[in-house]
Design a binder for these strands. Sequence first.
DNA 1: CATTAAGCGGAGCGAGCACTCCGCTACTCT
DNA 2: AGAGTAGCGGAGTGCTCGCTCCGCTTAATG
Lengths: 205, 205
Amino acid sequence: MRSQSPPSALRADAARNRERIIAAAAAVFAERGLDAATAEIAHRAGVGEATLFRRFPTKDDLIDAVIETRMEEVAVLADAAADHPDPAVALERFMADLVKQFSRDKGFFEAAGERCMNDPRFQPLRERALEAAGRLLRRAQEAGAVRTDLSPSDVTFLAGSAMYAMEVSKPGLREDLWKRYLRVILDGMKPEGASKLRPGAPKVL
Amino acid sequence: MRSQSPPSALRADAARNRERIIAAAAAVFAERGLDAATAEIAHRAGVGEATLFRRFPTKDDLIDAVIETRMEEVAVLADAAADHPDPAVALERFMADLVKQFSRDKGFFEAAGERCMNDPRFQPLRERALEAAGRLLRRAQEAGAVRTDLSPSDVTFLAGSAMYAMEVSKPGLREDLWKRYLRVILDGMKPEGASKLRPGAPKVL
DNA sequence: CATTAAGCGGAGCGAGCACTCCGCTACTCT
DNA sequence: AGAGTAGCGGAGTGCTCGCTCCGCTTAATG
């Protein structure tokens, strides 16, 4: 899967630890944000701090590695959603999956701007994600389900917008609030009128 | 304006410095986020660090003071927008002003969740802002310009959503990107169909 | 103008963090 | 199985940042 035998092959335990570190980092960054201490990540991964820094010389490198895996998921979600025969539903499912998957990830939210959007290191990932999203969008537009003045970037931005309410409201309270706002946004993406909204508005600002 | 003579009257220079500190903090938090060093704020305010901490015993207290002034602005914007005779335009103007005013404020964005939404200290401010937004919303709904299944909280959440793209994209690049997404969101808030979108999509993810 | 205390600034302190050093462990290869 | 090295953990290091201490300055008052 991920192995490259001849050049720089990691020892088996080292490779295992590397994956554990990434998984732990993803979890910790998601719930605590990017300021989370490397010590906590190492502890949660069950390794020493030195091991973490041997594999990722800098905290930044670790963050990059986590972001990379998360950005790959975007393209995967898009491709998965493309299976649906109805173009409108496919695009909707993609955006819903995106929001569901990332709306509780504080770290990804914090990294979105400076890193995901601008760092040239992620250019290929960006392109792959945008292409996949673009295919969904074009199909929906050709079916007349989505206004034609939207671009692939708009799809990801709008999905990000729908996440806003989740990032900002207390965890555990109204865990599906994003559905409400994604609904409004999807309505705004239609060429014509708006659709029904589920009742039950939140009580916070 | 702000003075309370008998109890705890600050000396004139101290009061002046207090305002300077808040202004500097607002600026620094806005561009650097809440992690900005207190030393930079003190320096930009032209005072020593001790002065800053004499007035605000904790960095948290300083943040609270800044947030408070920012939250008051929300209600002010809502009341100002209410002057417009057309209910739909009034609500639109409020949301546009809100996004314009806060979309480049990193600090407010970071504070939005934990502090603005949940801290009981801000309950009165929240209520005042929500009431003002609610008046605009109800008027627009009674005029048939906005779907009736939206609440005052939705208005602020949706305005926040429109800010997302700005917080996430590089400053200086497409400074009016928020207009694009606010347009989509406003269309989604209408009872019926969608309206025209200005051409020119961004090129980032 | 003299008195007085509120106010001031910057050096210093302690906590917490990213990152390193080094003696020990255990996987790999033959 | 034994040699040899990649890998390991946790104590240590230096730096940053929030916050304080204390001798000097200056606004307020009669």
